[in-house]
């Protein structure tokens, strides 16, 4: 089932949460909505679910406009940020809820409900916990109950709001891997909201990066990282050094280097973003194009982060520690730098 969001806008009072947003999620895809808080990602997810009404625009699920349909008739699985498990019901009853509230003629028999719930609890590896209450579960277990409960209604699409947001780092990593595997198994078109880029990069087939109520870029994780479409994406996704530069005739002059850019008919001020690993270091030898001074060196496992003073700018370079040792560079030394790649945008 595909999800199609067309020209959706939504404001709360004077605050524009979404500005004319369009997005297509393909059948079976796992899409991440990534952005800082306040970027509108949760609002978009809630509108897809029907939990909020857009001021304008429409949401099509499998080609069907659902905007007139009540939430309960949409068959959209939704996993809430804080899981919102029903505290007065056991794990089993939580998962069975969606089956039990069906109109009598569509309701499965008790035996059938038991079979389905057991199957789901098996899927999320919680079979031994069926008779427990939410208060007796750990965060990760609650998260899996919420997921099983959402899946029980055989949703057309699955929506997850910050699914790992409330968990500690270790559990989060484990669940992420498990979730990836689960998605392959059940293959439901899914959208999840996150502010954690690592989570988005690791889990999603594609990422929609949102900022200030708009989608800045929709791309696969590697595409978004390697070819950020906007300044915001370059800054938000991973770290990038930022340098002012000049563009002329399709070439950007960045710190003495001439780099080809895709800004063909533009001449003037621009901003270049350079990833730390795209800065090369060498010993200074008197006639280098660009020189910098090493401010500090921080060992990060096998690599080292080298902080550089480059004129009035500061740069961060990432380099193998072995390579750094070979070069024999240390704090206070001058060194030569090379910039192999940059993403250049017109100055605003």
């Amino acid at each position: 089932m595909t999800i199609e969001v067309r020209n959706v806008s939504k404001s709360f009072g004077a605050y524009h949460a979404l500005k004319n947003v369009s997005l297509t999620v393909e059948d079976g895809e796992l899409m991440a909505l990534l952005g800082p808080s306040g970027s509108g990602k949760t609002t978009l997810l809630r509108i897809i679910a029907g939990l909020d009404q857009p001021d304008s625009g429409e949401v099509l699920i499998h080609g069907q406009d659902l905007s007139k349909q009540a939430v309960r008739d949409r068959r959209v699985g939704f996993v809430f940020q804080h899981y919102s498990l029903f505290k007065n019901m056991s794990v089993f009853e939580n998962v069975a809820f969606g089956l039990r509230v069906r109109p009598r003629h569509q309701r499965p028999s008790d035996v059938e409900i038991k079979r389905r719930v057991d199957e789901l609890l098996g899927l999320v590896q919680l079979d031994p916990f069926a008779s427990r209450y939410p208060a007796q579960l750990s965060g990760g277990q609650r998260q899996r109950v919420a997921l099983a409960r959402a899946l029980a209604i055989e949703p057309k699409v699955l929506l997850l709001d910050e699914p790992f947001g409330a968990l500690d780092a270790r559990v989060r990593k484990e669940l992420r891997r498990w979730m990836r595997k689960l998605h392959k198994e059940i293959n439901v078109t899914s959208v999840f909201v996150t502010h954690d880029q690592e989570e988005a990069l690791e889990l999603a087939d594609r990422i929609a990066i949102m900022n200030a109520g708009q989608i800045e870029q929709v791309a696969t994780p590697s595409e978004a990282y390697d070819r950020p479409a906007t300044q915001f994406v370059s800054e938000f996704l991973g770290f990038a050094n930022r340098l002012a530069c000049q563009v002329e005739n399709g070439v950007a002059r960045v710190g003495g280097f001439a780099l080809p850019v895709e800004l063909e008919n533009y001449a003037g001020d621009a901003v270049a973003y350079i990833r730390p690993h795209e800065i090369g270091l060498a010993r200074a030898n008197g006639h280098d194009i660009a020189k910098a001074t090493i401010d500090s060196i921080v060992a990060l496992g096998p690599s080292a982060r080298v902080d550089l003073a480059f004129g009035d700018d500061r740069l961060e370079a990432l380099i193998d520690r072995e390579r750094l040792a070979e070069l024999g560079l240390s704090v206070g030394d001058d060194c030569a730098i090379t910039i192999t790649r940059a993403h250049v945008f017109k100055s605003a």
Partner: peptide, 17 residues
Amino acid sequence: EPELEEAAATLGADRWV
């Protein structure tokens, strides 16, 4: 939490249930 009622709604329960 209003999310509890919303969760019930996404699972197909009407307002009264």
